[in-house]
């Protein structure tokens, strides 16, 4: 073993090293980090391997009905988990379309959150499910709602030396869910994505939706969701809903599509996803 790679046995030991070794980075699956190291985009002084941290492993249903996914849980295990039921199925749907089998055998939800690629498939679903991100650092533990976790392009609420310990999705009313990923080919990062779930209360059904890859963080508008309540079958109401999300978009131009193309897709992808879910609901 070299001094370059550390294998902490507890979260406290891991964050202790991350805080005390300048230039140290945590490594989870390595799928994004090793690619960046190979391209010489990042040159860490030390890698703190989170693999052995028991606290970061696996999915569990909490006493209050919330679902906790440890940061080291791989895409493969999320895609195959029977614990994801009801609205939480959204995470399974997203995990199943990340990259390809070998990458899903490596990558983790904690690494995806730490990397915060605007096109990462978990971000929209976590936002759509009102998830909270559990964080640990040398000065202790805290929890940040997904709505406040991403601060900018590849920038998160994690302070230097802090790590993601888990993502926690609160219990939610059951309702149909859909994760729609628009990509050039299967396995590519999303050009745009849409995480959608239907939620019904006494006042009618509405859609909870988060659009991915159209800005540094997923787009969601709770206000627009309330305006849409009861109007899922009304094309104009759905179009207004799409326009409301589009208004907050800030997409990039890249090989996957121009910013303009992404903007145009927002209302269309939303409308088609809503049509698919409401259609399926009726049947």
């Amino acid at each position: 073993m070299s001094a370059f790679v550390r294998h902490p046995a507890s979260v406290e030991e891991a964050v202790g090293w991350l805080a005390s070794i300048p230039g140290a980075l945590p490594i989870s699956g390595g799928a994004s980090l090793m690619a960046m190291i190979n391209a010489r985009l990042v040159e860490p002084s030390c890698l703190v391997n989170l693999e052995r941290l028991e606290e970061l492993r696996g999915l569990s249903l909490q006493a209050d009905g919330s679902l906790r996914i440890g940061a080291m849980t791989r895409h493969r295990d999320i895609a195959g988990s029977a614990l994801l039921v009801g609205a939480h199925v959204l995470l399974r749907q997203a995990a199943a379309v990340i990259a390809n089998r070998p990458v899903r055998n490596m990558g983790t939800i904690g690494g995806a959150l730490g990397h915060a690629d605007p096109a990462a498939d978990y971000l929209g679903p976590l936002r759509c499910l009102d998830a909270e991100i559990e964080i640990a650092g040398r000065s202790g533990r805290r929890s940040v709602p997904m709505s406040q976790f991403i601060l900018g392009w590849y920038e998160t609420a994690l302070a230097p030396g802090e790590i993601v310990v888990a993502a926690r999705a609160p219990p939610l009313p059951a309702g149909a869910t859909l994760y729609r990923k628009v990509a050039r080919v299967s396995g590519d990062f999303a050009t745009i994505s849409c995480a959608l779930r239907l939620e019904e209360d006494g006042r009618g059904t509405t859609a909870r939706a988060a659009i991915g890859a159209c800005g540094p963080a997923p787009l969601r508008s709770e206000t627009a969701e309330e305006l849409l309540r009861g109007g899922l079958g009304d094309a104009e109401a759905v179009a207004r809903f799409g326009a409301a999300l589009q208004a907050h978009a800030d997409p990039i131009d890249d090989v996957r599509g121009s910013a303009d193309y992404r903007l145009k897709l927002i209302p269309r992808v939303l409308a088609s996803a809503i049509a698919e879910l409401t259609g399926a609901d009726r049947g």
Partner: peptide, 22 residues
């Protein structure tokens, strides 16, 4: 590209993204 894919405990993974110390 997938040309470095190997089996680790029977699972296909990318050897180019796998830290040897793990």
């Amino acid at each position: 590209c997938g040309s470095c894919t190997v089996l680790i405990d029977g699972e296909p993974r990318r050897a180019c993204l796998t830290l040897v110390e793990r």
